[in-house]
Amino acid sequence: MKPKVLKKEMFKLLLTSLLLPLLFTSCVYKDIDGANNFQAMLRALVEKSYAKFDQNIFKDETVLVSDFVNLDRLQNHSKLGFLLSDSLKNSLLNRNILVREVELGNDFRIGEHGFNLLTRNSNRINNQVINENFAVVGTYSVTTKRLIVFIKLINIRTGTILSSSSASTRIDEEILDLERTPDVRTTYAPLVL
């Protein structure tokens, strides 16, 4: 091989070896110190769905946002769900989408048949929900290797999912620690000396 062709091939190889890791790490939601950057993940999800948000939600309209729930349990008692929810609310507000927080355990539940209202008191429904047309619902699943996060824009009146996006990151000790729920059955006896 000619020296000029060899140099050109070596340059291509070097350039590829430098750029290839950047391609694979661009979807990793980690800070320089190795901590998870949930805010960046949720910001990316909102950006993926923003065209649909902008099409459907008027500038002065408020959307309901509840706590994220784990798809395996359809409940949220972990720090991870609350952290993801707050990151979503922050990302929506940064895009000038008005947010009204609702307590998932008191107002709504995600069950076998989807997004359910948890009250029969019509006055409460009228005061709590009647003025809103949309909800942004977040769910997540923890697999053996990944945390997968989903957000959906739902028309509350029709139950139609207008937009959905997902992202994932590798499971690490930080995620596992945030996902651990306190054991409510544990009783601590007072220490008597």
Results as ranks from 00 to 15, higher is better:
residue 66 S to T: 15
residue 35 A to R: 15
residue 56 N to D: 06
residue 193 L to D: 12
residue 59 K to R: 11
residue 183 D to A: 07
residue 118 L to C: 02
residue 94 N to C: 04
residue 140 Y to E: 01
residue 90 N to L: 12
residue 187 T to V: 15
residue 118 L to Q: 13
residue 70 N to I: 00
residue 177 D to I: 04
residue 143 T to Y: 07
residue 24 F to V: 13
residue 5 V to E: 13
residue 30 K to P: 02
residue 70 N to M: 01
residue 28 V to A: 13
residue 85 S to E: 05
residue 173 E to N: 14
residue 27 C to E: 08
residue 15 L to C: 11
residue 145 K to S: 12
residue 131 N to V: 11
residue 94 N to I: 03
residue 71 L to I: 12
residue 82 F to A: 09
residue 149 V to M: 02
residue 113 H to F: 15
residue 6 L to W: 11
residue 28 V to S: 14
residue 171 I to S: 01
residue 37 N to V: 05
residue 84 L to M: 05
residue 2 K to V: 11
residue 171 I to T: 00
residue 191 L to Y: 13
residue 142 V to C: 03
residue 73 R to K: 15
residue 38 F to L: 15
residue 114 G to Q: 08
residue 130 I to E: 12
residue 118 L to E: 08
residue 182 P to D: 07
residue 134 F to T: 01
residue 179 E to S: 12
residue 22 L to A: 09
residue 23 L to Y: 13
residue 174 E to V: 08
residue 41 M to D: 01
residue 32 I to F: 12
residue 152 K to S: 15
residue 6 L to T: 12
residue 153 L to F: 06
residue 91 S to R: 01
residue 10 M to T: 08
residue 1 M to N: 11
residue 62 T to Q: 09
residue 60 D to Y: 06
residue 162 L to Y: 09
residue 100 R to Q: 14
residue 33 D to F: 07
residue 137 V to E: 08
residue 132 E to V: 04
residue 8 K to V: 09
residue 37 N to H: 09
residue 124 R to D: 10
residue 138 G to Q: 02
residue 40 A to T: 07
residue 10 M to G: 01
residue 116 N to Y: 10
residue 41 M to K: 01
residue 61 E to D: 09
residue 142 V to N: 04
residue 164 S to H: 06
residue 36 N to P: 05
residue 46 V to C: 06
residue 150 F to L: 04
residue 58 F to I: 05
residue 52 K to D: 14
residue 46 V to D: 00
residue 56 N to R: 06
residue 53 F to T: 06
residue 137 V to Y: 02
residue 34 G to S: 03
residue 12 K to I: 10
residue 29 Y to L: 00
residue 30 K to A: 10
residue 178 L to S: 02
residue 112 E to P: 08
residue 124 R to Q: 14
residue 126 N to M: 12
residue 35 A to T: 15
residue 74 L to C: 04
residue 44 A to G: 05
